[in-house]
């Protein structure tokens, strides 16, 4: 199994049965292509009336972190999820990542039910979280080999792929053998993305991948995500606090507020709708404020520590 940053013609089979996506109409590339009327039979990600409830505090008060959320993401899309701190973004990503169980509703990844076919789903997904979790004493290379083995990849091929991806991300060979803890956060986040790509996920979950990065690293990561859209056959779900980033990268957006999706659409359509119906300035900030009643800037400041929010 190899992965490449060169254009790939078809859905990667990953060489791991039975975790191949269910067949998809190849003529349809998702709503961004303006072909919403030709929906593929199988969505890359289907979230159907999903609810996740936690009990919190000494009084064990129930809180719906995700409340009756439904969304459908087509293969090849970059789908953005915007939300304030505690809105349920990370919980939703964790649900799709199989790190949380669903209280009600269902989630399917390329037609595989996340509860009944958990292992198949796990082979199709990977996640990059805000905190770029690594064994910090190990080198990028050692962390990537660990990931490769967990995903059943051949170590020899994984080596070549890891070097190629890390090099593309600006991490020289001399850095690949040094402990991750000696790298900047931006570099660590690039290694996290490389680690995720190494396993050739067909659904890549990016949970605030640029939060807390310096402007240069943020741009690097954003460019790389953009490049992925063209070169790698992956569907991407991106949560972010950065409205410019969302506008730049995402084909469609959903705004999550108190666990519920309050609006969904292409950035252009959302902006146009808010300007037309509410007389607001034509910006994503206006869209966010209209539907949540608050500015995202406040949350960015609150979340400056880089910890994930919910």
């Amino acid at each position: 199994m190899t992965i490449s940053l060169e254009p790939r013609p078809a859905i990667p089979t990953l060489g791991r049965e039975p975790a191949t996506p269910a067949p998809v109409d190849q003529a349809v590339s998702g709503p961004s292509a303006g072909e919403q009327h030709l929906r593929p039979a199988v969505a890359a990600l289907l979230v159907d009336h999903v609810t996740k409830r936690f009990v919190v505090g000494r009084k064990r008060k129930p809180v719906d972190a995700v409340d009756d959320v439904s969304l459908r993401i087509e293969r090849g899309e970059i789908y953005g999820i915007l939300g304030a701190n505690g809105s349920g973004k990370s919980t939703l990503i964790r649900l799709v990542s199989t790190l949380l169980t669903i209280d009600s509703g269902r989630v399917e990844v390329f037609g595989h039910d996340i509860e009944r076919e958990e292992m198949a789903v796990k082979r199709l997904i990977n996640r990059v979280s805000v905190d770029a979790a690594f064994f910090k004493k190990l080198s990028p290379w050692e962390n990537l080999v660990y990931a490769a083995r967990l995903y059943g990849l051949d170590a020899g091929h994984a080596h070549a792929d890891a070097v190629r991806i890390l090099t593309r991300l600006g991490i020289g060979r001399s850095r690949m053998g040094r402990p991750v803890e000696q790298m900047s956060r931006g570099m660590q986040q690039k290694v996290a993305i490389a680690r995720a790509l190494l396993t050739s996920p067909t659904l890549l979950l990016l949970d605030e991948p640029t939060t807390g990065l310096d402007p240069r690293s943020k741009l690097d990561v954003q460019s790389f995500i953009e490049e992925l859209r063209h070169s790698h056959d992956a569907t991407i779900v991106l949560t972010t606090h950065d409205l410019d980033e969302a506008a730049r990268l995402c084909d469609r957006l959903a705004i999550l507020n108190e666990g519920r999706i309050v609006t969904e659409g292409t950035p252009a359509a959302l902006i146009e709708q808010v300007a037309r119906e509410h007389g607001q300035p034509p910006t994503l900030e206006s869209v966010f404020m209209t539907y949540t009643g608050r500015s995202l800037d406040e949350d960015v400041e609150e979340n400056a520590s880089g910890e994930d929010d919910d």
């Binding site: 791991r16 975790a19 964790r94 990542s97 199989t98 790190l99 292992m119 796990k122 082979r123 997904i125 990977n126 996640r127 979280s129 905190d131 979790a133 690594f134 064994f135 910090k136 990931a147 967990l150 995903y151 059943g152």
Partner: peptide, 14 residues
């Protein structure tokens, strides 16, 4: 402690 628990638990490993 390392912060890798979620990553390992998410991997397709029994």
């Amino acid at each position: 402690w390392e912060g890798t628990l979620e990553y390992t638990m998410m991997a397709p490993v029994r």
